[in-house]
């Protein structure tokens, strides 16, 4: 019935398209133009960086304004430089380690907690309250730093992997997700003699993965893009810097680029190349996961 209704209204819409009034036409032109403008503004800065990264360094430095196509001829010098640059490569591998470690640990924690919260026990309301309260109030930057420091994690990768690996939102989302698995599944698993651990991983989790993937994707993006924890916990250990801190450093260095005598102009391209290299994986992968992430926003927004 609902389906038929929808179809009818779609037919109605298409009927509307066939006989637009002058007013409708004007509205259409404005709406399509504005939407195209939003789309254009959304991608043009990244396009500018992409085209700059394959331009010629010296020409680019002298160039003013937007770079729509590579200036001074197409080169890959910038990318060649970053792949020879040991610290950028190191930043890349660090970022991968932090992202994988933090997401893996965080998802495991969110899964186990979410499952336990979805079952009835006397501890459940207490833990729920403890978790919810962290959404409201936090100790703040310095007291957290002191705890991480007394754990001996400052200046080690642990400070970047463990403290931010999960959050209240993820755990509550997993709880909701486990609550959404039909009760019969749990009952059948119990009758077949499966304990809680087996029920969670083998029976419930595969069914709860709809939101699970959303959590993993969100976590991967957030960890890959994160820079603040690194600037707090490993500011002086360049060997532990994630890629994002290198981007910040290289951008700052580029501002003083001309001060150096006899500059190597290809080095000017590094900033653009490293931005492209750091952003491309997410931007290329994004359209494949767009639907899942959209659903996550809606699921997370409606009563977390």
């Amino acid at each position: 019935m609902a389906l038929r209704k929808k179809k009818r209204s779609e037919e109605w819409e298409s009927h509307m398209v066939e006989t637009p009034t002058v007013g409708d036409r004007i509205v259409d032109v404005i709406v399509y133009t504005l939407c195209a403008l939003v789309a254009f503004c959304s991608v043009i800065p990244m396009w500018h960086v992409l085209m700059s990264s394959v331009s010629d360094g010296k020409t680019l430095l002298a160039h003013e304004g937007l770079v729509i196509l590579p200036v001074g001829g197409f080169t890959l010098d910038g990318f060649k430089l970053i792949f020879k640059n040991a610290s950028v490569i190191r930043g890349f591998t660090n970022s991968i380690v932090y992202t994988v470690g933090s997401t893996g640990l965080g998802f495991l924690l969110a899964t186990v907690t979410g499952y336990a919260l979805s079952r009835q026990s006397k501890l459940k309301p207490i833990v729920t309250m403890l978790i919810m309260f962290t959404m409201l109030f936090s100790g703040g930057m310095v007291p957290t730093y002191m705890v991480v420091k007394s754990l001996g994690w400052v200046g080690t990768p642990w400070a970047l992997i463990v403290p931010g690996c999960t959050n209240a939102m993820f755990m509550i989302m997993m709880m909701n997700s486990f609550n959404g698995v039909p009760r019969e599944m749990y009952e059948a698993a119990t009758i077949d003699g499966a304990g809680h651990w087996r029920t969670m991983f083998q029976v419930a989790l595969p069914q709860a993965m709809n939101l699970g993937y959303v959590i993993i994707l969100n976590s991967v993006v957030a960890q890959w893009n994160s820079w603040l924890p690194a600037s707090i916990y490993v500011p002086n250990k360049k060997s532990l810097w994630p890629l994002q801190l290198w981007i910040q450093q290289i951008t700052a260095d580029n501002a003083n680029f001309l001060n150096s005598a006899n500059p190597n102009y290809s080095r000017y391209l590094i900033q653009f190349a490293v931005i492209v290299a750091a952003t491309a994986p997410i931007v290329i992968a994004f359209p494949f996961f767009q639907d899942k992430l959209e659903k996550g926003v809606i699921a997370g927004g409606i009563k977390g």
């Binding site: 939407c35 195209a36 939003v38 789309a39 254009f40 959304s42 991608v43 990244m46 993006v221 890959w224 893009n225 820079w227 994002q244 801190l245 981007i247 910040q248 951008t251 900033q271 931005i275 750091a278 952003t279 997410i282 931007v283 994004f286 359209p287 767009q290």
Partner: peptide
């Protein structure tokens, strides 16, 4: 249009600042 408009949300803060 939607896909394009989502992209800035996934660009890192450091890159946006740059």
């Amino acid at each position: 249009v939607q896909t394009f408009s989502y992209l800035p949300n996934f660009v890192a803060a450091v890159v946006v600042a740059s």
